[in-house]
Structure formats: C-alpha cells, structure tokens
Amino acid sequence: MKRISSFRRTRIAGPILVVAALFTIGTAFGVASALPGAQTPMTTGTSTLVSQGKAIFLRGCSSCHGLHAEGGSIAPSLIGVGSAAVDFQVGTGRMPMADMSQQAMQKKPLYNPQETAALAAYVASLAPGPSSVTNESLAYERDGNSALGGQLFRTNCAMCHNFAGQGGALTNGKYAPSLMGVTPKIIYEAMITGPQSMPKFTDATITPQQKLSIIKWLQAANHEQNQGGASLGRVGPVTEGLLGWVLGLGLLIGAAVWLAMKAK
C-alpha cells in the first residue's frame, strides 16, 4: 500500500514540478482569472512582486516553512496552496504565528496589503493553487440566494461555526472562530483553502455560486436585526438559562425581599 501511494505521489509530483517550472506568473494570472470572479493583485511588475515576495518569505516565513516553502517539522509545505491561502493566513494576521499554540489566532496583520500581495504572488508562483479573491469580485448580492445559503451553511458549516455563525469549540482547545464581521473574501478563501482545522470545500462539492449563497446568508446573519431584544450572543440555551436565573429569578427575589420588609 505504501509503495502504491508513494508511486502515485511521484506520478503526481512529476507534473507538478514541470508545471511549477513552466508556469510563469502570467499563466498563474490566467488560472486565477479563470476562477469565478477572481482577480490577482498582480497588475504590474509581476516578476518584481514575486521577487519582493520571495525576499519577505525568506526573512519572515522560511524559518518554519523552509527556504523553498517545502515545509518543515513544525509547518506545512506551501507548494500548491495558492495565493488564496496566503491572503487568508497573512491577511487576517494568523500568519506569522505569534506562538506555537493549538491554533493560529487572528490578530493585527504583520504585513501590509502590498507585502501580503507580494507574498501571495511568490507562493502562487511555486505551483498552481486556489487564487485569492477580492470583496469586489464576489457578486454575492447578485448571484447568491440566502435561503439556499442558509441550508448549505447548516449542512456544511453550522456544526463547527454554530447556527448563527458565532463559532464553537473543537477538540483540545481548538475552536471554530466566529464569522461575524468577517469579510466575504476571507470566508471565500477559507472555504477554498481549508485553513488549519477547517476542511476544504472544493468547487465541485460546493459550487462557486453556492459559496456566494453562503456568503450572502452570512452577510444577512451579520446584519440580522434583533427581532426579540438583546441577542444574548446567539449561542443557545446556556446564556438564556443564566439570564433566567440571574435577572429573572434575581429580580423576583429582590421584589420578594422588598415585599416582606417592614415599611418605615
């Protein structure tokens, strides 16, 4: 079994190497624009961007991901992860990691959008992979259907991110983050790259248009007005029970104490 899989790996690895060698930044751009609504930031001086990115990579990333992004004992290979993964990880500040904790946390990005784009261009130049997108390129308002999106969300996302996208617990301290306030492009890139614990949702299993539906539903959930008063975090009965005891019974016991107190 091992031999078969390693054989297969070499068979796949061959073309990948060839492709990696052949693919210029221009063809990478072509692949990127073939994906729905995708655009790459590389409009001018792409090769400069790649070399800029490589410089940043060698300075800031290579100690973990290896000099040629081939990965190491503590960090995965970045060959073939595409510019979308870089845009997601670096653009949300998850990479570079602050410490080797269970999970890379979202924080203030270390690199500015220019540097992030350069890094993305460099990683995309290594091998083809999912390309980053922009908020403007995702016409979710036009192409999405929020009812369908809600159904897809509940089938594919709610088990980790909670029914209202508030996030939830995973094993051993890992967690699925809240999706509130997350921009459409970051959600899109997360779905196509499967960052960290999150699995990938390929365009074959959830079509680009269905992804836009999910985003449309999430944007609606983001702006969901409170129909019945304070939302209590939208995490279900735990906060409700707490409020019932503390505020509900608390106020009533307060009233009972007042009732039984002798008047002056």
Binding site: A158, G228, R234, E240
Partner: peptide, 14 residues
Amino acid sequence: LGAVASINPIWLVG
C-alpha cells in the same frame, strides 16, 4: 425579559 431579551430565536436555527 420577553421584551428585552431574545430567547430561542428559532428563525436563526433553521
């Protein structure tokens, strides 16, 4: 409580 605090928002749950 019914006025100010949402409870069991079933429309969000699906």
